[in-house]
Amino acid sequence: MLSIKDLSFGYGQQRLFSNLNLQLEPGLHWLSGANGSGKSSLLRIVAALNHASQGSIHFRQHQVGSAAYQALVSISADAVCPLQDNTVEGILQLVARCRGIPMEPLLLHAKAFMLQPLLRQNVAVLSLGQQKKLSLTLALAAKPQLLLLDEPFNALDPESLVYCCAQLQEARQQGALVLIASHLSPQSFQLKLDQHLELKAGGHLSVVPL
């Protein structure tokens, strides 16, 4: 279970959340909200990339930032961009090495996302959709228990969209907690959601009926 307690965060003088509380069970969760409501920042905080000024985050009793926690989490977001001056293959190898996973699942997802012909290309020359596919490949291949996806469906072609949704359903069936932040309506996608939350200004969360 993901447990967020009394979370406060802001950029300089601008405060995004104050005392945000959230408890999520494994499953597929959709987090919507207006632009600037703090969805992406919340995901980055949960991924230990940003640090909250106050509050605590635990996943399966492990504290955010601990080695046990980090081994369970993966994030795909536009703000988490693979190194631009490396090849696609180089990035796959790098993630395989750092996360201690074999290359096969990475190559499998890359093939499904039609990235295989681009393995020798530099990341910088990939299109927006191709960069998104690479980011999803890296996040999915690690088979994380806590999968954080920020606007995962933006710029994806229809085939990749179907594949991505299928992979998220599979992750859900395997007991993972998938948190998708998006400003889009979840009805547009073939996903069986467990919960739909809306984040409003100041960090107020409300449950939206499915």
């Binding site: 991924a47 980090q70 977001a77 536009d78 703000a79 631009q84």
Partner: peptide, 15 residues
């Protein structure tokens, strides 16, 4: 860039 730094940091095994 900040986005690339986030990527590098996301690969760290712990804080």
């Amino acid at each position: 860039s900040v986005a690339e730094q986030y990527f590098v940091e996301s690969l760290a095994p712990s804080a």
